[in-house]
């Protein structure tokens, strides 16, 4: 009987019951709940009594519904543009499916949406040609999660950017061997739609339509605690990606050079100088390393 159970036991049982996405009875009958209090769905009243208006399961469902309503609301706060694109009801349906597949396991809501883009990728309808509207949703959710992670994560504000002295210490014959250490907030995102513009339009309380496909290469970073993004060209994107992947300067240049049209070496050299100037002045690098250093 309830009086023989400890408060801790009851609390843990109730947590298992009300956080079960399949409902109260399913929660009561789950193995995890039965490890706390071993009853089936017909014996809930032995733990939680009826009220004058509601049965035991209904009383518990109040808390179960509230739990998921809060989570849906929080997920919607993290993915406002995805929510707008889907519509409230459809977004809630996606959210519930997501919570069923990836239950919240952290004390922090900062991790709640971490796997939501992958959930969308996993469920993408296979019969719709790419890039189609499912890819728009996936790109949009991926962008919103990236923004959240860059905002929440370690930023450059308290870190020292790459200093001239570190570069002056590099022997000239080893320049192509240099590896750049990027700032922790520097992220790249390749999308099939201009989802950054859609996001901005939603933030500005507009009602944007689904855009036509458009290759979109984004750099996302943070400065002064504000998340920022910029559009870059394919060679610039590939060069940054190669650097973020840990390639040396020389290897990264070779990779990016493949994206350059024939006979544009001079333009490429000028662009390299300009890009690296900008990236360094913007604080996108923290240091340089040499092999075996």
């Amino acid at each position: 009987m309830a009086g023989q159970r400890s408060l801790t036991q009851l609390q843990r049982w109730m947590q298992e019951v009300i956080t079960n996405p399949d409902g109260i009875v399913a929660g009561v009958e789950s193995s995890t709940a039965r490890q706390k209090i071993d009853i089936d769905g017909t014996r809930i009243e032995e733990v939680i009594g009826r009220s004058t208006r509601l049965g035991s399961a209904e009383r518990l469902a109040v808390y179960g519904n509230a739990y998921f309503a809060r989570l849906i609301e929080c997920l919607g706060d993290e993915f406002p543009a995805t929510r707008f694109a889907l519509g409230e009801e459809t977004f809630q349906t996606f959210a519930l499916g997501y919570f069923e597949q990836s239950p919240s396991t952290s004390y922090s809501l900062g991790f709640l949406g971490a796997r939501f883009p992958q959930y969308l990728i996993d469920g993408r309808p296979a019969d719709i040609p790419k890039p189609g509207w499912p890819d728009f949703l996936i790109d949009l959710a991926t962008l919103e999660r990236a923004y959240a992670e860059v905002f929440d994560g370690l930023g450059p504000e308290k870190l020292t950017p790459l200093q001239p002295e570190a570069l002056q210490a590099i022997p000239i014959e080893l320049i192509s061997e240099v590896r750049f250490v990027p700032a922790p907030s520097l992220r790249l995102l390749e999308a099939s739609f201009a989802v950054h513009e859609y996001f901005t339009a939603v933030r500005q309380s507009q009602s944007p339509e689904i855009p036509a496909p458009q290759e979109t290469l984004l750099v996302i970073t943070r400065r002064d605690y504000v998340v920022r993004r910029g559009i870059v060209s394919r060679p610039e994107f590939e060069l940054l990606r190669a650097i973020l992947d840990g390639n040396s300067l020389g290897a990264a240049i070779e990779i990016a050079a493949e994206e350059q049209p024939e006979g544009t070496n001079d333009d490429f050299a000028a662009n390299l100088s300009r890009w690296f100037h900008h990236w360094a002045s913007a604080g996108w690098f923290l240091n340089v390393e040499l092999p075996n250093s």
């Binding site: 950017p161 790459l162 200093q163 001239p164 570069l167 002056q168 590099i170 320049i175 192509s176 240099v178 750049f180 300067l249 020389g250 240049i253 070779e254 050079a257 070496n265 490429f268 050299a269 000028a270 390299l272 100088s273 300009r274 890009w275 690296f276 100037h277 900008h278 990236w279 360094a280 002045s281 913007a282 604080g283 690098f285």
Partner: peptide, 23 residues
């Protein structure tokens, strides 16, 4: 070409770090 491109990139980053300091 490769050396020229590497030098261009490295020169850019050196200038950028000075610009960052000045900023």
């Amino acid at each position: 070409d490769f050396n020229r491109l590497s030098m261009a990139a490295f020169g850019g980053v050196v200038a950028g770090t000075f610009a960052g300091c000045a900023d």
